[in-house]
């Protein structure tokens, strides 16, 4: 399905561990396994959704992709270049092509800078790499971008606190797209917004993607939003991908027990359509000492002996390259779920 589309980002066995220090001599006491061996490819113009519960490593993964967190292991290739091996100067140039939108627009915009100077900063940092050399040219361009994201010209001289949450998120988006990047990592861009404003921002993001042929990595915990915007989805659990598929396929036939539980737990805004819930027991275990074998086995209703010892690989199912699951018994469970009457 991606024939003809260019491979933009290729992630192989990416790991990010954070050391924990403590005790009198500030000893190394262990690691937080935030991202624990993740691989995927993203093609140009595509949206990849990353979903999972808090602490599953989605934000860390997003930052590791942009080398904001240098990875502990594995590689991230952007347009065929391994970003871990390039020089600092070259990395800075590459950052022009990869930008980020953050969840909390109040904290990610400098309160002492006017919107005009916030948006001018990327042009100054990447001086010489674009055609906007003079201050006037930059101002014209910034005004054009402001209009593009649905803000009034007068925003130029205002400060972030003068805007509402939705408008601030638009400023964050404007900053991210200012240099016409190829890849934008969006870390929970609409989670902090009210529903009526959320739809405005989502519409804006979809429109910009079409106009500028942007590639999004869309990180969120709201599965309905992710399904709406993403072409492909990776479901994460404790630093690993448990299932990856086209978004339609993922919601229609989730294969992994965790994905099934996650989808069944979404409250559907329709009282007539209340489905039978699959309520998972217990909490997400600590990423400091993840359980051995399959990370999900302590909460999995179908866990067996093998799950406690062997960590399952992410593998394709039914010969379908697009749908990958990491569960030893995926076929068996799926066959059972599909034909409940035969049991």
């Amino acid at each position: 399905m991606n024939d003809g589309k260019k491979l933009l980002l290729s992630v192989k066995n990416l790991k990010k561990h954070f050391p924990i220090h403590g005790g009198v001599f500030y000893r190394h006491m262990g690691n937080v396994h935030a991202v624990d061996g993740i691989s995927f490819d993203v093609h140009q113009g595509e949206t990849l959704g990353l979903v999972g519960e808090s602490g599953c490593g989605k934000s860390t993964l997003g930052k590791a992709l942009l080398h904001l967190h240098p990875p502990t292991g594995g590689t991230v290739e952007f347009e065929g270049v391994d970003i871990d091996t390039v020089s600092v100067k070259r990395l800075r140039e590459m950052r022009k092509e990869m930008q980020m939108i953050f969840q909390d627009s109040m904290e990610s915009l400098n309160p002492r800078m006017s919107v005009g100077s916030i948006l001018e900063e990327p042009f100054i940092i990447h001086k010489g790499e674009h055609e906007f050399d003079t201050a006037e040219m930059r101002k014209t361009e910034i005004l054009r971008i402001l209009e593009e994201v649905g803000l009034h010209e007068s925003a130029f001289d205002k400060y972030p606190h003068e805007f509402s949450g939705g408008q601030r998120q638009r400023i964050g988006i404007a900053r991210a797209i200012a240099l016409k990047p190829k890849l934008v990592v969006c870390d929970e861009p609409v989670s902090a917004l009210d529903v009526s404003v959320q739809s405005q921002v989502l519409n804006l993001m979809v429109r910009l993607q079409k106009e500028m042929n942007l590639t999004y990595i869309f990180i969120a915990h709201n599965l309905s939003v992710v399904k709406y915007i993403a072409d492909r989805i990776c479901v994460m659990y404790l630093g690993r991908v448990v299932e990856a598929a086209e978004s339609q396929a993922l919601y229609e036939k989730p294969m992994h027990p965790y994905t099934q539980a996650l989808i069944s737990a979404i409250p559907e805004p329709d009282p007539a359509q209340q489905k039978e819930k699959q309520v998972l027991e217990g909490d997400v275990p600590s990423p400091i000492k993840p359980p051995p074998g399959c990370h999900f086995h302590p909460r999995c209703p179908h866990a067996r002996e093998k799950c406690k010892e062997d960590a399952p690989e992410l593998r394709s199912i039914d010969g379908n390259e697009g749908h990958q699951v990491s569960c030893h018994f995926a076929e068996e469970l799926f066959a059972k779920a599909a034909k409940p009457e035969s049991r």
Binding site: S164, G166, Q167, V195, S196, V197, Q198, S199, Q200, L202, N203, V206, L223, S224, V225, K227, Y228, I229, D231, S247, Q248, Y251, I266, E268, P269, D270
Partner: peptide
Amino acid sequence: KGLLCSIPKLDTEQKSKLFEIEGM
């Protein structure tokens, strides 16, 4: 009505235009 229309549901068509309540 506006609130109900503006939330993406699981059966909302992908990347279709969502209903917006104008302004704030």
